[in-house]
């Protein structure tokens, strides 16, 4: 008798718990439904769509399309514009990402070590991040103007010949890189500053007592490893942002002169929204997405291996 009562109480408890759980699950589903629907509508479906379109010859303005299999991708391989674009994006990234990371780290350590003007320097370096890039690119265009631009005027004062910064195929990518570095250092710097202040002071004391005499020793023993997670994040975001360069190219060069500043997103934009070759542009987009996936994957791997201390 007693056993039976206990068993039935158990059953009742289990039942009530499962109703509570069902109730909770239903609430959770209702609360996340808008996000789920929008996620499917604006991210999952379009991504599927872009992959799908990359196998078609769809062009805006023409009704109907047919499957062309891998044609768009094989065209990519032989497309000189695409190869140029991929190369330019790589060069731009290879300049902007490391320079903006190390400049930011260097300035962050100098600011951290310096007593006066901390907030002034931080503000000055961060200002470009809060500024409209299209607008500031216009200012840079003026600064880089071959004849009336202050940069070349200044070089002329020193007796140096100024290049046609944004106007010649040889220098345009470097000029854009300068703007890219100028724009992104502040963001990295703020993250490094936060990372630096989070390093326990006792570690530096321990390093000194342990015999780390020079600033370089302390940097190697404490600062650099302790900044590991920040550096990894800053590196990933810097590379991804550099790969996504578009605003300055669209505003200042339109990919020119002679495609020497053609970058990935600009090519996609041109093909898809100017020439309206949606199918081909989709294939380009898939390549772009694949690059992002690979970069993120590498980040996760490094994160798991290298910078997890816990």
């Amino acid at each position: 008798m007693a056993d039976i009562t206990a068993a039935s109480i158990h059953a009742a408890k289990a039942k009530s718990r499962s109703t509570a759980e069902r109730h909770e699950a239903r609430n959770a589903l209702i609360l996340s439904a808008p996000a789920l629907i929008l996620l499917l509508l604006f991210i999952v479906l379009p991504v599927a769509g872009v992959v799908f379109l990359s196998f078609t010859d769809f062009e805006l303005g023409y009704s109907g399309f047919k499957f062309v299999g891998m044609d768009n991708y094989t065209e990519l391989l032989t497309d000189r514009t695409f190869r140029q674009s991929l190369w330019n994006t790589t060069v731009y990234t290879a300049i902007v990402a490391p320079v903006s990371i190390f400049m930011a780290l260097g300035f962050a350590m100098l600011i951290e070590a310096e007593g006066i003007g901390r907030s002034f320097f931080r503000t000055a370096y961060f200002l470009p991040v809060a500024s409209l890039l299209v607008a500031m690119a216009t200012v840079w265009q003026y600064l880089f103007h071959p004849t009336i631009g202050p940069v070349n005027q200044f070089l002329a004062l020193l007796g140096l010949p100024g290049p046609n910064w944004l106007g010649s195929a040889g220098t345009v990518l470097y000029s854009l890189s300068i703007i890219g570095v100028w724009q992104s250092v502040g963001f990295n710097l703020v993250l490094f500053l936060a990372g630096l202040t989070a390093i326990p002071r006792e570690l530096y004391s321990a390093a000194e007592v342990d015999g780390a005499k020079s600033a370089f020793d302390r940097f190697r023993l404490v600062t650099w490893p302790m900044l590991g997670p920040t550096t990894l994040f800053v590196t990933t975001i810097s590379i991804i942002n550099a790969v996504k360069v578009f605003e300055t190219v669209k505003t200042l060069t339109e990919g020119g002169p002679n495609k020497s500043s053609e970058v990935l997103l600009f090519t996609i934009y041109q093909e898809g929204f100017v020439y309206l070759r949606v199918g081909y542009a989709s294939a380009l987009t898939v390549v772009f997405l694949a690059i992002l996936v690979v970069l993120t994957f590498i980040q996760y791997r490094v994160q798991d291996k290298q910078v997890h201390y816990a």
Partner: peptide
């Protein structure tokens, strides 16, 4: 501090979190 030949144990221990115990002791 490096030249003094004094050793210190800190309140938070101040072990280098990225190094193993043996690497910490070896520093």
């Amino acid at each position: 501090p490096a030249d003094r030949n004094v050793a210190m144990v800190f309140q938070s221990y101040a072990l280098y979190p990225h190094l193993t115990a043996s690497e910490n002791i070896a520093v």
